[in-house]
Design a protein around this nucleic acid. Structure first.
Length: 215
DNA sequence: ACATTAAGTGATT
DNA sequence: AATCACTTAATGT
């Protein structure tokens, strides 16, 4: 049986000093999350900061008209930059986080945020680095929205999904993909069909198999 | 066998 | 590239 402490150690052991790990172990709550769970919705007040142990989570942002944009994915070893900024400013969430794959997270009450930033150098740089890498990822999203065509975006998206799940087989339907890329189901279906004819992928119901040599 | 949901397609904007 | 209207195919009950 792996304890919570083991889990913290395997994923964050190299990042944090022992004292901090023990403190995390003491205050954090380990939670299992199922696929599709919305852990944070728009307007929620954030009370916990999530440290991802296992699985992946996708983070969306919604505009006034209800259009959603996929901002970034969180994987094990990541934390959510949004919750960081929410914690610091005590603001409400302007994002939605949905579990992509069954996950495990450590929930840390936000009052430790400030304390630890002063107390632990490693925590400070962890927070800082998280901000940095999320920022970079969001710049990529902006690039892709501004400059890439739908077919390129779709291909990239499929690749991203493969990276995250570590598999060439993706169980998704076209509607979901359309939602994630804020496109429409028909457009996605047509582009996928074209990719299949080009031999890049194989399409089944609720399943897309990527050709390894094309990735 | 029937209902439901996913995917494919042509036409229109 | 999006939307509509419709068809066809796969899957669940």
């Amino acid at each position: 049986m792996t304890t919570t402490l083991d889990k913290i150690n395997t994923h964050y052991g190299y990042v944090f000093e022992n004292e901090l790990i023990e403190e995390i172990n003491y205050v954090a709550n380990l939670r299992k999350l199922n696929e599709g769970d919305a852990i944070i919705s728009y307007g929620d007040t954030i009370k916990y900061m999530p440290l991802l142990i296992k699985g992946s989570i996708k983070v969306f942002r919604e505009d006034e008209k209800g259009n959603e944009v996929l901002l970034y994915y969180l994987e094990k070893g990541d934390t959510c930059a949004m919750s960081l900024s929410c914690c610091l400013g005590n603001k409400k969430s302007t994002i939605q986080a949905v579990v992509e794959e069954e996950s495990e997270v450590l929930l840390i009450p936000i009052n430790y945020m400030n304390e630890w930033i002063c107390k632990y150098e490693t925590w400070k740089s962890f927070v800082f680095n998280s901000y940095n890498s999320r920022f970079d990822e969001m710049l990529k999203v902006i690039d892709s929205l501004a400059f890439m065509k739908m077919d390129e975006r779709l291909l990239k998206h499929l690749n991203d999904k493969c990276m995250i799940t570590g598999s060439f087989e993706l169980s998704v339907n076209h509607r979901e993909l359309a939602l994630e890329l804020n496109s429409s189901r028909e457009v996605i279906s047509r582009l996928l069909k074209k990719m299949e004819l080009d031999g890049k992928i194989v399409l089944k119901r609720n399943l897309i198999v990527l050709n390894e040599s094309e990735v």
